[in-house]
Design a protein around this nucleic acid. Structure first.
Lengths: 104, 104
DNA sequence: ACTATATTTCTAGATATTTAGAAATAATAT
DNA sequence: ATATTATTTCTAAATATCTAGAAATATAGT
């Protein structure tokens, strides 16, 4: 994942609703949750939720699988790990560098 | 850092310019870099950069210290670690949970 | 006092996001 | 065929972000 991709993904997670959706999906587990289940749990109007989910899918934070009528949303753990890895590597330079790193 | 705070910080990092600034500051080290140095390195108009820096400071991603005429910007490693910690803890649940986690 | 430097604040236009109702689509059940 | 359910697409208004020139502020040097 390059600079632009990282920024795009962080921007998607940087919205209260979408962060809540992602956290919910992670808690739901690797088999995910349907749009309807998310909607009920987080109480977001259908069209609004659909819009947010589409954005998250677009950058690869989640996958969406159609099972007959319902659409199941699955968090992409791999993608998040990439994101975290980027932040660790590019923004923390190994681990820490300041003399007072211990206090962080 | 709570849900809202995390979302706000991720949103700030979710902008190409600001992510570039943050990365530059981390590379600059714990003593940071002046606004002018950032401006020269990343070639962003002064007023635009000032705006982005103010936003980053507002959520705590960086600190700004005035030294006579110049303002030095210092990355807040602690803040980023908190952010990473939140993502690890809240969005990865320990490490991995799916039977096929290896394939992720 | 005057000039140069560093940075911000003001301002405003262009663009993007957020929100959600209403209508549309698709699949299953009756 | 019709109704029901799940979800999307359309649409539009409200709000926020991004951008950058111009003017303002603050500090230091001459």
């Amino acid at each position: 994942m390059d600079h632009e991709g990282v920024a795009a993904s962080l921007a998607e997670l940087g919205n209260t609703h979408r962060l809540a959706v992602f956290r919910f999906l992670v808690k739901a587990g690797h088999h995910g949750a349907s749009v309807g289940e998310i909607q009920k749990a987080l109480d977001i109007p259908a069209s609004t939720l659909s819009h947010h989910l589409a954005r998250m899918a677009r950058v690869g934070l989640i996958k969406q699988e159609k099972h007959s009528r319902t659409i199941v949303c699955i968090p992409n753990y791999h993608h998040l790990q990439n994101l975290i890895g980027f932040l660790q590597a590019e923004c923390c330079m190994g681990e820490n560098m300041a003399p007072d790193a211990a206090s962080l």
